[in-house]
Design a protein around this nucleic acid. Structure first.
Lengths: 146, 146
DNA sequence: GTCGGTGCAAATGCTTTGCATTGAT
DNA sequence: ATCAATGCAAAGCATTTGCACCGAC
């Protein structure tokens, strides 16, 4: 699993004429080893504890690159500075998001709602709403150089 | 639609021994009228343009209350300071999140993945990953005073 | 008169940026 | 030599907080 990720990252960097530096390799490895949701500060501590020397600036810059490469994404679980929306009693809005171009399509699916309600029932919870983001590559994104 | 929301908000406030003030009413109304994803600063501008005088502090404080009441939530679409996670080639992690207690359960569903892939195919996109957050009320949350 | 609410301004704290230095081709 | 990467410290910026004043019950 680590080999392909590394290869994907290198490919992405190459396509943008950027370099696969030791710092970037270390960061990717630290993320792979962690294999869990992480906060930036947290990852930095761990890397330093493990003897890796990276600056916070480089870490942030690399995280952005890894996102662009489709290797990591935001857990979007506890966000600051986010957008808000009415949910109470509204049909949920679901999105297809292209990881290459950023384009997104809004859709809504009854099957999804049915599945959601079924999952809730299974756990004894009462559904109120949901958020479904599908990360994908759009036809235009597929055609882009990579 | 606006009446029940207002009632729900009042009920929530009452349960916490808080008051339904004119500022809070104005904010809820502005959000209802907008009926779309919004940013805080944006909403503030609009309210002011409409002649409503609210401070940014009150707006933020009210948004927190509205979230607690389950009336709005974060669109989680473009976040700062968020958590990150590996996604490439990983089984996606899906969550049931209790809007009352904050407790969350992680799960994963093959049916969901199948549905996701089908939706992507329908639009000619290639699925890479997804994020599914279900907002619900857990058994403990249901038992809480409200 | 007590308790919460509001606005303002200051403080926080994550993230980004400017800049000088370093390294790879 | 050129072009990008790094680290540091400073800057940015959305959000939160402290505090003094106001208003409802």
């Amino acid at each position: 699993m680590t080999a392909p990720l590394c290869a994907i990252f290198r490919k992405h960097l190459k396509s943008r004429n950027l370099k696969y530096t030791p710092e970037r390799a270390d960061i990717l490895n630290a993320i792979i080893e962690r294999d869990d949701v992480f906060e930036v500060e947290e990852l930095l501590m761990e890397m330093r504890a493990g003897g890796y020397r990276v600056s916070k600036a480089t870490l942030y810059r690399t995280i952005k690159l890894l996102q662009e490469a489709g290797i990591i994404n935001q857990a979007l679980f506890d966000a600051r500075q986010s957008h808000y929306q009415l949910i109470y009693g509204k049909a949920p809005r679901d999105y297809l998001v292209c990881i290459k171009t950023g384009r997104h399509i809004e859709f809504s699916s009854d099957d999804l709602v049915a599945l959601r309600d079924q999952l809730c029932r299974k756990h004894g919870w009462d559904p109120v709403g949901h958020r479904f983001l599908v990360y994908a590559i759009s036809p235009e994104g597929r055609d882009q150089a990579d």
